[in-house]
Design a protein around this nucleic acid. Structure first.
Lengths: 131, 131
DNA sequence: ATTTATGCAAATCATTTGCACATAG
DNA sequence: CTATGTGCAAATGATTTGCATAAAT
């Protein structure tokens, strides 16, 4: 049975309080400030475990480390090609699209993730001011 | 200027002839059968280069190695949670959804990837026969 | 009391890189 | 000829694991 350790709770809290989808390195750095005794191995083990149990979500994107998301409900992401930041997208999660794929291919479709790519607002502004 | 080497062509051909999105290990193994002198470093370098130039695509999925796709035009994927295979999804690529996100957030949205997850036909059958 | 989790360090696995040589243009 | 690419082996970086100890139930 899974236990409720101090370390695990700190990891969960850190993730819930972060809204920019940190990778393991960033999570470790953040936690290390207040709790320098928590090891990276523990963070790795817990992130894997929590992802498996559905308590948190992993966000896989081209390039870069895996990122983690404290929001467990499905939602979509935007990744800025310039600064690399990953933002939540306010777009209704469509069950209907799962059905379309199921009907076309016969697969059992449980979920889907969408990753949008382009330039974020900050980088658009910077590009304009540079010209 | 980029050159046209024998090795690069073999890597491209191998990818075009594969329709199941191999990872680097699988690409290497396949190439190694016929061309044992081609090194893994060369495959790494070329996959990176070809992805950068848009000649091939990288498919990033949770868990597992990066996969590569010889089809350069955007399309979506399905990943079987049971056997791990990655299949192309026959679903029209929608530019409209990019616009929706652009209008809502202000981002410049160039493209998006959708990954569906569930059980593939083979694994659905196996599940039934096991019961 | 027993099982699960932690911290550390070492091991493993994937990927990149330095370098001497080869080859495409 | 010269710039780019290759193969090899070594280096790097991320992640996992073995083990003794600690903590949760």
């Amino acid at each position: 049975m899974q236990r409720n350790t101090v370390q695990r709770q700190i990891i969960i809290d850190t993730l819930k309080n972060s809204n920019y989808h940190p990778n393991i390195e960033e999570i470790y750095t953040e936690i290390h400030k207040m709790h320098p005794s928590i090891s990276k191995a523990t963070i790795y083990r817990n992130l894997r475990q929590l992802t498996g149990s559905g308590a948190i979500r992993r966000v896989s994107l081209p390039d870069g480390l895996e990122r983690y998301d404290g929001i467990a409900t499905p939602h979509h992401h935007f990744r800025c090609k310039s600064c690399g930041s990953v933002l939540d997208v306010d777009l209704e999660y469509s069950e209907a699209i799962n059905d379309i794929v199921r009907q076309k291919h016969g697969f059992q479709v449980d979920e889907h993730d969408i990753v949008f790519m382009g330039l974020c607002n900050k980088c658009i502004k910077q590009q304009h001011s540079r010209s």
